[in-house]
Design a protein around this nucleic acid. Structure first.
Lengths: 249, 249
DNA sequence: CGCGTCCTTGAACCGCGTCAAGCCAGGTGG
DNA sequence: CCACCTGGCTTGACGCGGTTCAAGGACGCG
């Protein structure tokens, strides 16, 4: 059994799995740490497999069986689905504290994939262990249910936005979404870790259009761009681009 | 206390609320009946408020507080969200056994609305009662979590479809979706209760396009149309329109 | 039988995606 | 240290698919 302390990229590439204990985990937003009772935390940490994913690596693959739940301890990931002509659609983003791999209803194939967009550490707990934990820790189950409920609301909002917005609105909406997910309750509104293609896959448009709109927004002095860093200068004016009732972020 | 037996449209319009007991309810797919323990079923049926909604009536309004969960005992409903230029987007459909009103995460405003598309009977249970039920009935909570999980997966699939499909594929996808939701495990693939506008709001296109595509499909003898009834003649060929990996239904 | 609502079909316009070329930055090797 | 190369980003031009506008048709209700 190994303990995860600090490893540089080269070291971690050479490892397959690392194990740790929840008590040593510093992820305050982890649902298990928050809502499972202490005896169960011990059980879960025995079944907990921690793994390191380098930027660009798959955490889960599309259309593959899902064996359990993945909790992001640190890092960021995009959840995507490949569609027509291998076009990638990013359906959501997640970071520290986020969960990947909703166990399927009946079917076991997980229709979306997840790729780390930053070097990430992810805890894995298998389905059977999770099921037992759910039955014995109602508050954990309830809060995970609330988590899904929130994701479902976001997802339904996104359906509408993708269907109805024009490209500019889609871009603005995507920027606000990224800021909301990655910089919650923060004063700085800086968007990093995402390529133009990631952003356009998220907005549901193509990179060329995205580029055009970003230039527009730059000219309007609503954002500034330094290479891959997008800085939101005036978030209120940005929000004005999406009519009040469509705002989700 | 009243008991719901049988009421015609005129009678029900004159009532506000009706009460019933779960033991008398015949909805076998109700999660409460399936997974709550018997003592809790009694408690829940005391707090259960049943109401009748005529076709076209709102079950919940957009951007309003949600006070609890709605379980559809009979009938059908569309869950929608109003977007740009008051354009309606139907995000999903539901029927007997379905649930509306995921209690919000933090925020209490429910961003989507629900309208009965057939005369419907709906059970309502308030948030506080539901919370207590969840904490004491882990299997109920777990299964509701699975329900949301499934909805989330559907929703994420739909994001991709709406973003990438052309109109014909969107129409076919919508038809297959409706058939999947309303005629599960059924030999007849007949689509009723939906107007052209409902269907186009679901597919994320306009009624004119929908009409054109339906005519096309009729000429190709994949569907037949009798007024508002759409009959799927060849569901396998219809499925061939959406590439295998995009199929969700 | 007449009216209104929903559905269908046609025609014209335009926003967006595609194709293509140029640009810039970072990495590599001479 | 500089020249080259590669991959991602940007910008322009064009064509198509889809939306919008408009008119005609079908159906249901009073």
């Amino acid at each position: 059994m190994f303990f995860y302390i600090y490893l540089n990229s080269f070291q971690v590439l050479t490892m397959r799995k690392v194990f740790t204990k929840c008590v040593e985990c510093r992820t305050s937003s982890c649902l298990i740490k928050q809502y499972a009772n202490s005896s169960w935390i011990k059980i879960l940490e025995e079944h907990n497999q921690m793994a390191f994913y380098k930027e660009g690596q798959h955490i889960v693959y599309e259309n593959n069986p899902v064996m359990g739940l993945y909790f992001i301890q640190s890092g960021k990931a995009k959840i995507y689905s490949t569609g027509i002509n291998n076009k990638m659609q990013v359906v959501r983003l997640t970071k520290t504290g986020g969960i990947i791999g909703h166990r399927g209803y009946g079917g076991d194939l997980y229709p979306v994939g997840a790729i780390a967009i930053e070097d990430s550490v992810v805890c894995f707990i298998d389905n059977e262990t999770m099921y037992n934990a759910f039955i014995e820790n109602p508050k954990l189950t309830f809060n995970l249910m609330m988590y899904y409920s929130k994701e479902l609301r976001n997802s339904e909002a996104k359906i509408k936005n993708i269907a109805q917005m024009n490209v500019k609105e889609k871009v603005v909406d995507a920027l606000l979404y990224v800021d909301d997910v990655f910089n919650p309750a923060s004063d700085t509104h800086k968007i990093i870790s995402l390529t133009r293609k990631d952003l356009s896959d998220l907005a549901g448009i193509n990179p060329e259009q995205l580029s055009r709109i970003l230039s527009e927004l730059k000219n309007e002095e609503l954002i500034s761009i330094v290479s891959n860093e997008i800085n939101i200068i005036d978030i209120d004016k940005l929000r004005d681009f999406v009519s009040p009732f469509n705002r989700t972020y």
